[in-house]
Write a protein that binds this DNA or RNA. Structure first.
Lengths: 346, 346
DNA sequence: ATCGATTGGGTAATCGATTACCCGAGTTTC
DNA sequence: GAAACTCGGGTAATCGATTACCCAATCGAT
């Protein structure tokens, strides 16, 4: 460690200013000096100290990203997409998981700000408890929310149109003949959880099918299993279950089939997200696809425009999802919904 | 942005030295000054600039972690475990994915070093192409490899005993009656891929069953599906397939069942890792469990001891894996192998 | 009363890279 | 031929926090 630009300058027999200029090319130097500096830098294996540069430039070339958890394939997919998006822009990503805890989330934001990230992308874990920390952060650096958001509208957001997504799912199962539709979702701690529930409720009401009490737990496979068990215990199964994400749906399918129900013959199941292992489920899962790449590139683009504490009204960009029909729901007449045959083993 | 310790000092009517001392408590100040400084800091919302501190202290309080990809649940599990391990040590994790590309990996190491991380934890993506960048990094900061490692022995490593793991798997299916055992793994680009194959070969040979040509592809579900298809196409199925990881195993099971084979009756399947969705597979997957938490805490512990470019011989810590028998293999007499019933839906 | 020791505060150097500013040499222009 | 410019190099300030070093005041001991 520790070959500095002073060492390079000395080795090349020039001043640090010349060395810096030769290396950065931000001001002309004679070819002779350029050459000597380049050689000296190469010989010494000089690598600029990004910490010093960051201090001087007041910019770190990093952006922070905080998601509830990287165990959830939906978030890892977003993270990967954001990373790809940042790939060649020279900015690095500092990734943090809040572990679904507003306290941890606040701490992580704190240290990211202390490290002077140039911007933040966050999916706030709790729609209420996350508010102060997120708004505070938004006041200090450009911040964009992705997927989940907090209410109170201080910060930009990009995500899928959750209500529209649930509408697609509900309309699809109704078109397939379902007369009773249950919603299996998560406790209403996030915007996604709330909007997906309300999307279900509205669409069901509009379509004239009964709005049944929702099953609310967590966005996990385990909760899906449990939800399926409850449906089985209740005696009469609904014609269809629409789920707030794929993990719940996969657990639900397993649980229902374990209990002897046939999917989709006895009960249709539709998930949400279409990332990770939706195709790996048996049978492959019908689901609502989130346009993750688009969300990521939109988020990065937006981040470039946002200024910290900008009084401009916060933007909300809701991207339309699309339905992917596989085998846990009855296909409907061609043209009504998109058909997909990905995911089967053969 | 931008309330500095100078602002705090001015507001409190003291020198920056006193302000710093009052805030850090590293030298005594009068209670009166401590009080004034604390109040001024609180009122101004002072937050120390970690960049400046890092430059001055020559230590950033961060460690970098580079894994091949966060789409693979095995790596996300390790990352989470490392994060948990670091939780209260005041060090943050800078996470990077190399996307299974040695070039990307080298670039990521480069920028982590430029950012002066205090240490590195890496799972090198390629056993040969990763060598120069990893050894170079190890010369400059403490570095510990986890799971995958490079040959040439310059850096410490902690991981599972891959050969022993495969031995467990192979012995288990043989004890269950298998006479023909095929290995489905990955191209030999990583230490894990190589050791798991050789573990299979040795154990099969020792047990006197024929060592069959391995199916080598990638550590993915897709490759598992393809491998299953090839076995089906070949006409006669082996009694058992041991896989290099769970993703391959899950794909393989789906593929075989789709082709009409019964698992485990016609062919037993055993995976490797036991993270993520091994229990979600239908039927639940028998597998070899990697002690991820232990690996993570060992890696962090080791990192604390390693010095950059330490001439001390590199340590290799291989932790013993254990077999988890679920339902894709025939159980054997109690006591020979551990039984588990986790993962069924009911 | 005087001399050391102790206490606690302030000044300025430091970390490494960038760049504002200055200066001298060479060119151009009238 | 001198003023005005250009070009390219060097010196030192700067970013913000920490701390080596210095100094004044106070205390205790002789």
């Amino acid at each position: 460690m520790g070959v500095t630009i002073h060492d390079v300058a000395r080795a090349a027999g020039v001043s640090v200013a010349s060395a810096s200029r030769a290396l950065s090319g931000r001001r002309k130097v004679t070819p002779e000096i350029a050459e000597r500096v380049a050689r000296a830098a190469a010989e010494l294996g000089y690598q600029p100290n990004a910490v010093a540069k960051a201090l001087r430039d007041q910019t770190t070339g990093t952006i922070g990203m905080v998601v509830p958890g990287i165990g959830n394939p939906f978030f890892t997919t977003i993270v990967e997409a954001v990373e790809r998006e940042l790939q060649n822009s020279g900015t690095d990503l500092l990734l943090c998981a809040s572990q679904y805890s507003p306290q941890v989330e606040a701490r992580r934001l704190e240290t990211l700000l202390a490290r002077r990230v140039d911007g933040l992308i966050i999916s706030p874990c709790d729609i209420e408890a996350s508010v102060p920390a997120v708004l505070d952060a938004a006041r200090r650096v450009p911040l964009v929310q992705v997927d989940r958001y907090i209410e109170g509208g201080g910060a930009d957001w990009v995500g899928v149109d959750d209500e529209a997504g649930l509408a697609l799912a509900v309309e699809h199962v109704i078109a397939g003949g379902a007369r009773s539709v249950v919603f299996a979702g998560s406790r209403l701690e996030s915007s996604s959880a709330r909007l997906r529930l309300s999307g279900y409720e509205r669409t069901a009401a509009r379509a004239g099918v009964e709005v049944l009490p929702p099953l609310l737990g967590a966005f996990t496979l385990e909760w899906g299993v449990e939800a399926g068990r409850r449906l089985l215990d209740a005696g009469r199964l609904p014609d269809a279950v629409v789920c707030a994400n794929d993990e719940i749906a996969v657990g639900l399918v397993r649980s229902l089939r374990f209990g002897g129900a046939r999917v989709p013959e006895d009960v249709a199941v539709v998930g949400f997200d279409d990332v990770g292992h939706a195709t790996m489920c048996d049978p492959p899962l019908s689901t609502v696809r989130q346009p993750v790449e688009e969300m990521a590139s939109e988020a990065v683009r937006l981040l470039g425009q946002v200024k910290a504490g900008d009084p401009r009204p916060a933007q909300r960009i809701a991207i339309a999802p699309r339905l992917v029909v596989r085998q846990t729901s009855r296909p409907v007449a061609a043209g009504t919904a998109e058909e997909e045959q990905r995911g089967e083993a053969g």
